[in-house]
Amino acid sequence: MLHDPFHLAPARMHEAEGQGRHAFALFQAVRHDGPLIWITPARALHSPMLPGLPEGVGERLHLIRPENETDLLWSTEEALRSQPVGLVIAEPEIPMSLTVARRLQLAAEAGQTPGLMLIREGAGSNATETRWHCDPVAGGADSTLHRWSLKKNKKGTFGEWILHWHGETAAFDLVSKTGKRSPPATSTR
């Protein structure tokens, strides 16, 4: 059976950085059932655009806009603790301390909810389970390529994948490097 390299371990905290992190977050949003919570600071200017979102995400997505960083972390923790939530996406503005990240990790375990923090480059925390670096890649006329590399993984190997994901459904195609097979993404479990 083919191992799914982009599966986020449940009840764990994950991080995504790079210019394609929003696309990665929405890619994960399609793959998780249940309500989605996206927490951005109230002064952040960007927002997901409903007509452009992948199928089935718009009606499940809830945006939380806390006024300050403390409230943002508090809402993230509350959302992670809540059982029915499928995925929590949060965009903290300042790098999280180890205490904060560990606290969120405990909340994720309590609620059995995966959390995905969209962070600035290099602002990652040690307590997180995996860290992804996401970049869009230029490609042919009929492809929307992404390079997603797993830079940190507490329970497994690193890896780098180039895939074609058009941003409408959960379907994606891995692109093999020429002359090479895709890296052996074997599970250690």
Binding site: P48, L61, I64, R65, P66, E78
Partner: peptide, 22 residues
């Protein structure tokens, strides 16, 4: 359970900060 979460969030952040896309 989701309504409870929104109540908790809304009471601290204000209900206008817990949004949905329509």
């Amino acid at each position: 359970a989701l309504a409870d979460l929104f109540s908790r969030l809304g009471n601290r952040l204000g209900f206008q900060h817990v949004q949905r896309l329509l």
